[in-house]
Design a protein around this nucleic acid. Structure first.
Lengths: 119, 119
DNA sequence: AAAGGTATACGAATCATTTCGTAGATGTCA
DNA sequence: TGACATCTACGAAATGATTCGTATACCTTT
């Protein structure tokens, strides 16, 4: 339930691309940095054991799929992050993140709408 | 420049309490969970080596102080977090964090003001 | 001065994560 | 069929973070 950083990278790929083989994931990862094939394989096997990924055997290949939803996972991660880095204050996180970001006026409007909904 | 989780816990204490001895920090940490004195000591020594903390020797004691500012550090952490967990989209992080949080109406107003400033 | 308490220094055990080499199975193609 | 490519399984090295035991020095109190 607490993916490590490398696991997260793999999840990203699967969330973006949908169910994939090790090779597909590995190739995607390699666009950012060099990672050996067996490294990715091993990681995905471990994630399968931990029930983070499901696996379907199609002939000789294994096709993996994320069992955690992106949203749920992000929710968890934010909780932990707020605790460890912001002493529990989500608002501080939000304001800092917003300050750093180069949000477009549209995005800012969208955010305002979200705020109004929350009130 | 990339504090680990334990290091962050120590930084939190120093940011909150200001310059402190190992014992003071350790006692603070122990309110949340049990940590041995020498564990905290070692960690703070390492942080000193890494130039995360400064150290002043006052008689027999060493007084440590954070060399990283809370804001700067949080900024870095957010950047990394946005990358690893939100594929680079700070807006997604902000909206998720806001959705999860139980912000008070006052806080939401404050946030709106911040947004207007950014526009 | 001796005993007890408390400091720092430091090496090393432990634990988690990441990386990769090698082996064995299976498919493909000349 | 035989050579070659590609797949999974698996053990274990490498790395990084955390934790702690022990040594040594110094103060304080009796």
């Amino acid at each position: 339930m607490k993916p490590t950083e490398s696991e997260l990278e793999i999840l990203q790929v699967l969330w973006e691309k949908g169910p994939s083989t090790v090779r597909q994931v590995n190739e995607q990862l390699n666009q950012a940095k060099e990672v050996g094939y067996t490294t990715t394989l091993k990681l995905m096997q471990i994630m399968h054991e931990k029930a983070i990924l499901s696996r379907t055997e199609e002939g000789r290949y294994h096709v993996y799929e994320a069992l955690l939803s992106e949203e749920e996972t992000q929710k968890h991660l934010i909780d932990r992050f707020v605790d460890t880095a912001f002493r529990g204050s989500a608002m501080k996180l939000v304001m800092q993140a917003l300050g750093n970001s180069k949000a477009t006026p549209q995005e800012l409007d969208e955010l305002k709408r979200l705020i109004d909904q929350l009130k």
